[in-house]
Design a protein around this nucleic acid. Structure first.
Ligand SMILES: [Mg+2]
Length: 407
DNA sequence: GCCTGTTTAGCCAGTG
DNA sequence: CACTGGCTAAACAGGC
């Protein structure tokens, strides 16, 4: 029985957020974070269209996702940046597209009346599962540590720079509870705290429907009949039909190169793995700068596309048409994953076709991405774009460092 | 003591 | 109304 403030808060969270006066919202909320800079530059209050909290949750996501997707797909910054995926690459990133102030202002002004509050701190329309997945997907090796996940989320969504205890507990819970996330032990060569987390090879594209708040079906590995544990049979969508058994993470090694102790499950590395060469996700503590090696993203395997994300209410078929050929495979390798790489444009393409999928995404406006910079205007549609911003943003202030920890 | 993980429990919202 | 997926709280174990 408690519906203490926490709870009620949550329930209201969104609404509340919406109601914050921008001034408050924007300022108070991102306190000391070094990132400020990143945000500030461009427009302060991006929000245009006002949206309802509901909409927010409900459908817009696709829009965002779209952006996300794109984002991931984006020319893997890893590749382009020797410095590492997330490094302060200012100039490089900064320049590309960025809308000029005038324009921004104009736009802003236009909607000025509508918006009335910053969505910066509104809760992003993604479930923790989605966020974790994004984090994993965007990492060069397709696996990351808990702290990297935290960092990724905070970097991307200012909202999560608050109440860290609360949501981080949820993140941990999600990682443990959901079978789609599996731990990958560290190898001696990459010491540090905690294990790496990756996606279960059979998890496929959990957000097929384009909904990042709720999956249609939870991914569960089949319970070995050894233990009772409740579910078992009932679940559909189990993996390892029949003999897969609970997937053994052992298969996935951070460092595929060596030892292969466990034969058991073979796993054809869905998400990356395979990649020879050292994955080396930087160890959080030290960041030796030798990020250099960052091999090309493993994923480049196939150019698939982003799946379904951007388009909202289309039927699958429709989406498929729009989106690219689509991978035939089980969807594993090529990622049907939303946050997969390539994809980029397909999305906007799709958007265009749809003509309407408004992307309003508040969050987009949110911040990070914000800017409708290049070209398109937000209300117009075409989601994406944001992506670039994301990186830009992240890149700037995320030297990844400890900055946040303090807070 | 903090961090990482695991697990249990209750609540909520969406769906059929 | 029952189911189900997601969120939050919290207890607890282990490691450093
Ligand atoms: Mg798990």
């Amino acid at each position: 029985m408690h519906l203490n403030e926490e709870q009620s808060m949550n329930m209201l969270q969104n609404k509340a957020a919406y109601e914050l006066p921008m001034s408050v919202a924007s300022s108070s909320a991102m306190p000391a974070y070094s990132s400020m800079a990143a945000y500030t530059p461009q427009m302060p209050g991006p929000m245009h269209t006002a949206m309802h909290p509901h909409m927010y949750t409900g459908m817009n996501m696709q829009g965002h996702m779209g952006s996300m997707a794109t984002m991931n797909s984006m020319p893997p910054m890893h590749t382009m940046h020797p410095a590492g995926p997330i490094s302060p690459m200012n100039q490089a990133v900064m320049s590309p597209m960025r809308m000029d102030m005038n324009r921004a202002q104009a736009i802003n002004r236009a909607r000025e009346k509508t918006y009335r509050r910053s969505y910066t701190h509104a809760k992003p329309p993604y479930s923790y599962i989605s966020l974790i997945t994004m984090s994993i997907q965007q990492s060069p090796n397709k696996m990351c540590t808990l702290s990297e996940i935290y960092q990724f989320i905070m970097d991307l969504f200012p909202f999560y720079r608050q109440n860290q205890q609360r949501w981080q507990n949820s993140i941990r819970h999600s990682l443990s509870f959901n079978d789609c996330f599996v731990k990958v032990p560290r190898t001696p060569d990459r010491p540090g705290k905690g294990s790496y987390w990756t996606l279960h090879p059979d998890s496929g594209n959990m957000f097929e429907n384009g909904c990042y708040l709720r999956r249609q079906k939870r991914f569960k590995v089949q319970r070995r009949k050894g233990d009772p544990k409740g579910d078992d049979d009932g679940d559909d969508m189990d993996s390892g039909d029949e003999e897969g058994g609970p997937y053994e993470p052992a298969d996935i090694k951070p460092n595929p190169a060596e030892d292969q102790t466990s034969p058991s499950v073979k796993v054809e590395s869905p998400h990356s793995q395979q990649t020879p060469s050292q994955p080396q996700p930087k160890t959080e503590e030290q960041q030796p700068t030798d990020l250099t090696q960052q091999q090309p993203p493993p994923q480049q395997q196939q150019p698939t596309s982003l799946p379904h994300m951007g388009v909202p209410h289309l039927t699958h078929e429709q989406q498929q048409q729009l989106y690219v050929p689509h991978l035939g495979h089980h969807g594993m390798n090529n990622f049907t994953h939303p946050f997969s790489i390539n994809s980029l444009m397909s999305q906007s393409e799709a958007a265009k076709q749809l003509g309407e999928m408004k992307m309003y995404s508040p969050e987009m406006q949110y911040q990070y991405p914000t800017i409708q910079a290049d070209g398109k205007d937000i209300n117009g549609m075409v989601p994406n774009l944001a992506q670039s911003d994301y990186y830009r943003t992240v890149g700037q202030y995320v030297p990844h460092s400890t900055s946040v920890s303090a807070l």
